[in-house]
Amino acid sequence: MNIEQFNILSVGVGGQGVIRVTQILASAALLDNFYVRTAETHGMAQRGGSVSGYLRFGDLVDGPLIAAGFADIIMALEPLEAVRNIKYAGKKSIIFLNDKQILPLSIYQSKKIVYPEFNQILANLKKITNNVFFVKATDLAEKAGNAKTSNVIMLGVMFGTGILPLSEENLEKSILKYVPAKAKEVNKIAFKLGIEEGQKIRSELN
């Protein structure tokens, strides 16, 4: 497949598997013969803070960062983090949100700091793009057998909608390469469940 560039921004909170999902996607993109670039959050920023994984692949990618307004996909393992990164969304962006809320500790420090309602989050994201979808990824991950596979659920969802220009074979190969040996089976199930969920969304894409 020839594409100039495809940009995926994965966001979430430290420990949710943002870096891992970026790694899996990068590996699959290389197996599909694309040039690949990622940028990740490590070190101090990781300690319970917001985490971002930038992924770019295609025939014309040099730098690792996504320009504001040009993410093809924004995948948020925590809904608030999608809003925090709204500058990366453009009219054509597709945004997937795991509906699992993780409260930032800052809400306890001032009455003015509140976690917005999910419908407010949705309304604000929809100012930029109509393609915003909540996914019950954590619930599905529990169904798959481990709540920590929510990142792989989201990976499946992205693929299931048909918008991810990567092959299922290489995605699965990469998932199995990057998850711990004893979690291979549960991640396979999570990927399948995610794909099914993504296929449901497919008809709603604008």
């Binding site: 319970g48 307004g69 925090r84 709204i86 930032p104 500790l105 800052s106 003015k112 604000n124």
Partner: peptide
């Protein structure tokens, strides 16, 4: 440059913290 959205919600900060 592409238009950006004006948010009508505040996004609470999520600073790094001790584990």
């Amino acid at each position: 440059p592409p238009e950006s959205a004006t948010l009508d919600i505040l996004v609470p900060p999520r600073l790094p913290q001790m584990c």
